[in-house]
């Protein structure tokens, strides 16, 4: 029988071009952040000058700190709520209001951010809430818990349910079976969900612009107002630092999931 070659030249070319398209712009941005010249387009030799500039920019540092705090707190609350939602949807069978529940969870994934941001702001104004750290955190939690729920739910869906059932046949109550069997197995997805929520929050401009108050700008809000005025090498430096932070987060996430999945595999046959 003739063996069909799976990978044609066309496949290789489209893959290579696709990946180059995805990575080159970011690479160029990073390289130019080390450019000594003030002109972003002229190469003036390697330098850390723009990083220095950033660390002396108080307003920028404050915005970065605000973004970091919002990202950590909203990702943590979102992971908790999103995991609970995923458990209810994938293990709760039928319950009243289930369709509305899943509808509310899936809609924010694609809902234009201007709508989500505007609607939350109007709620906060109606409640007379002081806008700042907490309103942005609540807004980001609402958005990111949906992503966590989807990530965890897809992991729960691919899990062998006979493991939980075996634990219960051996005398565990459902909560115990969940905590000692299911939870360790979905831990990688929960970690990945937290990381995703963290980066989404760190990234968000539109929703934060609507829900924050005067004097508490997040990093994307500050970057946006600078970028509108044109390209500045300092922004390249900040962007590079954010990319580095996210890269560290991704590496930790993949290490964590590798660690717990190898544990999970060794635990599975028991």
């Amino acid at each position: 029988m003739r063996k069909v070659s799976r990978l044609s030249r066309f496949n290789v070319a489209s893959l290579a071009l696709g990946l180059a398209f995805l990575y080159l712009p970011i690479l160029i941005l990073v390289i130019y952040s080390f450019n000594a010249s003030r002109l972003v387009t002229v190469w003036g030799g390697w330098s850390l000058r723009w990083y220095h500039e950033f660390f002396n920019d108080r307003a920028m540092i404050e915005a970065a700190w605000m973004s970091f705090r919002v990202a950590v707190s909203s990702a943590t609350i979102a992971t908790l709520l999103g995991t609970l939602a995923a458990v209810a949807l994938s293990r709760g069978e039928r319950f009243r209001g289930r369709t509305l529940f899943s509808g509310m969870l899936y809609a924010p994934l694609v809902m234009p951010e201007v709508i989500t941001g505007l609607s939350l702001l109007l709620l906060f104004v109606a409640l007379n809430a002081e806008r700042g750290f907490w309103t942005v955190t609540i807004a980001h939690t609402t958005l990111t818990m949906c992503f966590v729920a989807v990530v965890v739910q897809s992991r729960l869906g691919s899990l062998d349910r006979s493991l939980e059932e075996a634990a219960m046949d051996l005398g565990c109550d459902p909560v115990r079976a969940f905590l000692s069997v299911t939870l360790p197995l979905i831990a990688p997805a929960i970690v990945a969900g937290w990381m995703l929520a963290f980066t989404l929050s760190l990234d968000d401009l539109v929703i934060a612009s609507f829900t924050t108050g005067p004097g508490s700008a997040t990093l994307p809000i500050r970057i946006y107002s600078e970028v509108r005025l044109g390209v500045k090498p300092e922004i390249n430096a900040i962007c590079t630092l954010v990319i580095a932070l996210i890269a560290v987060v991704i590496v930790i996430a993949s290490l964590a999931s590798k660690l717990s999945s190898s544990q999970g595999e060794s635990a599975a046959p028991l």
Partner: peptide, 30 residues
């Protein structure tokens, strides 16, 4: 055991449900 497991799993919906109604559904009314 699958159905016994489902009961407490349903309770897990309460907190995220309330959150989404409050911060996703109600704002549209405004």
């Amino acid at each position: 055991s699958r159905r016994i497991f489902a009961r407490p799993a349903r309770f897990a919906a309460i907190a995220p449900y309330v959150w989404m109604v409050l911060f996703f559904l109600v704002p549209f009314a405004f």
